[in-house]
Write a protein that binds this DNA or RNA. Sequence first.
DNA 1: AATTCGGGGAT
DNA 2: ATCCCAGAATT
Length: 362
Amino acid sequence: MREPSTPPAESLLAWYDRHRRDLPWRAPPGARPDPYRVWLSEIMLQQTTVAAVAPRFAAFLARFPTVEALAAAPWEEVARAWAGLGYYARARNLHAAAKVVAEQGRFPEDAAGLRALPGVGDYTASAIAAIAFGRPEVPVDGNVERVVARLFAVEEPLPGAKPRLRALARRLGEEEAAKARPGDFAQALFDLGATVCTPRRPACTLCPCRVSCAGHRAGVAESLPRKAEKGLRPQRFGVVFWLEDAAGRVLLRRRPPAGLLGGMLELPGTPWREVRWGEAEAHEYAPAPVRWSNAGAVRHVFTHFALDLAVRVGRVERIGEALAVPRDEVLGAGLPGVMAKAAKAALSAAAVAEEAWVRASA
DNA sequence: AATTCGGGGAT
DNA sequence: ATCCCAGAATT
């Protein structure tokens, strides 16, 4: 009878106690974390890197210190605080969920209750339940899928392998060491995936679970998990208009509440289509019948299409609409990334024009 | 089961 | 350039 090696969950937790990442939303070891912070961090971290979230988490928390404060805030303030983070449905759902929690007086304390909140899916419900409330859940994110696929040498490609990977993750969580510390076990899996069991060139020599890893033993760890091939990214085109009045105010508008960039600010412009816009047809969507000059174009890549956005600038004596902001405040108004790019192009073109004017007058 | 949702960092 | 990220909601 061979001596059994230390089981993976126990090894992983011992490793975590020495190598855990110190992150802004994590409570000190042994302390019970604030459910509001756990929830907020989990929503921000959906498909978003730790590096991108860290500075935004602190700023958001300073602006909305409690779930009650968030629930009481107007949408415009929430949108401004989220601008640039992407996946804006997260902000809309966050706001809606805050109202539910504030109304109920507290967060649900199990996965099923959390799952009912807007913007909380299976993964996030499990993560909050484990981390904030010590429930025996194993949240399965991209990190955990990769770690588990390698530990058990799962050759089936994603996304088809998801149910199998979830079942294997649950099996890992049934080890006594994991059940004793569900939140730490979950975060240990995250940290292992982020710092050791990385997508490319995993550091298997540093891995606490190396002796248990079927993928490593078979020499295929780095090639897992396998993934189905994805299609090509289509191209779309649009035109946006930077309309400025004599007082230096710039016309903005708010997008419809659902869909792409829903509820966020933008420069007025044409729809986005698969064919480039001609000058005349684009100007049918211009916010005013003025002479438009070309301020170049910006390119932006979304998850499922690439956008080529031509930027035109024009002037009127006075903008009547309410939603106009001073040109120096446009970039601070909370524009999504693509619109911030377009605004910078317009501001840059205006600066060039100004310089030419100064040079010509000299 | 497939598609629609952003943006940035690493390679 | 491609890949990936503490995924969810919709169709």
